[in-house]
Nucleic acid binder design. Structure first.
Lengths: 183, 183
DNA sequence: CAGAATATGTGTACGGTGTAAACGAAGGAG
DNA sequence: CTCCTTCGTTTACACCGTACACATATTCTG
């Protein structure tokens, strides 16, 4: 019963695979070749290269959100928060090219964490955790939290730091300790 | 006395200008055109496009380090640290393309903050400030500090957050408050 | 069912890129 | 003067994204 997957999905799959293989920006022609189709065929499914890559990025955000949610599944609030952070950085280190691509896509609308569609769900979960820990300044704390893990992730991708899980935990735990204190 | 600047410097200048003008990756040919020279001329001065862009990045790190040092010039330890953070993010927001380019260049050697040549000087200053504030966990705190500002900077460039100076100050001040407390 | 409309893929072509290879012209050293 | 080095040019190739015109297949409509 395995119908041969629409070309659209094939292209996205190959793009994801090439990203995972280290390619920083899969090209339309390469993807078409991989799918055994002419160079112009992809354009029946995507307006242009950017649109295709944006679709890949969207997938990436979905799986990132899933992994974050999984990490957030159990433990104390603080533990969950730290686990999320580890998952975030782990995702970035496991799929560097994809991670970079995801955040390199231009966003529509104003810059605000909860306004940017792809980040909204994950950001909401994070905000919940932080709210449970920090009384006042919850907004700043949430942003700081995201900034820390995102910073560690990108610095790791650009090999400015190593950022193994243990280090992420340590840095994040320190932050949590500083945040969660009587108002 | 104005000798007409070596082609090498002209190319770097134009590259910097084009980056400042929004171009994400100035091309060899475009730079050659800007310098009024043939497309192959740049290759007399740079092995390839990557080498040229790396040279631009190096310049960028130098001016970033200078701006950080300037911000660090006066005030209490905490104030200096926060000022550095503001300067870091301000730099990124003022020269988004350059900032991205700087960190996108591959680094030689192991990933370690103080080992990566371009970052070493600025990182050392940062480490000093943090050491003066946090007793134990100074290493983690330093890394956390860098991660926060770098995270804010990159998230701002990818328009995930706005990150105006006030926000940077707030987030960073919160972190400093959490860090600097009786051992 | 016929015929038209829509969806999907192909072939060709244009202008852009980075860069390899071979060639010239200018100046200093023997 | 001749030779070598430095700096630039010309030409050419392979690749890229994509506009345009065409073929075919599927589906909708009367």
């Amino acid at each position: 019963m395995k119908v041969p997957a629409s070309l659209r999905d094939q292209l996205l799959d190959h793009a994801e695979a090439m990203l995972e293989a280290g390619e920083s920006e899969p090209g339309i022609r390469a993807l078409a070749r991989a799918a055994g189709v002419s160079a112009m065929a992809p354009y029946r499914h995507f307006a242009d290269k950017a649109a295709l890559l944006t679709a890949v990025a969207e997938r990436g955000f979905a799986t990132l959100a899933a992994e974050l949610a999984a990490a957030d599944a159990s433990g104390s609030d603080a533990e969950r928060l730290v686990a999320q952070g580890r998952a975030y950085v782990a995702f970035a280190r496991a799929r560097p090219a994809l991670f970079r691509l995801m955040f390199a896509r231009p966003t529509e609308g104003d810059p605000a964490p909860e306004k940017t569609r792809e980040n909204a769900p994950a950001f909401a979960i994070l905000a919940d955790r932080v709210a449970a820990l920090a009384g006042r300044d919850a907004a700043d704390a949430t942003l700081g939290c995201w900034a820390i893990v995102h910073g560690l992730a990108t610095l790791a991708l650009d090999s400015r730091v190593d950022a193994p899980p243990a280090q992420v935990s340590a840095v994040l735990a320190l932050y949590v300790a500083g945040i969660s204190r009587p108002t």
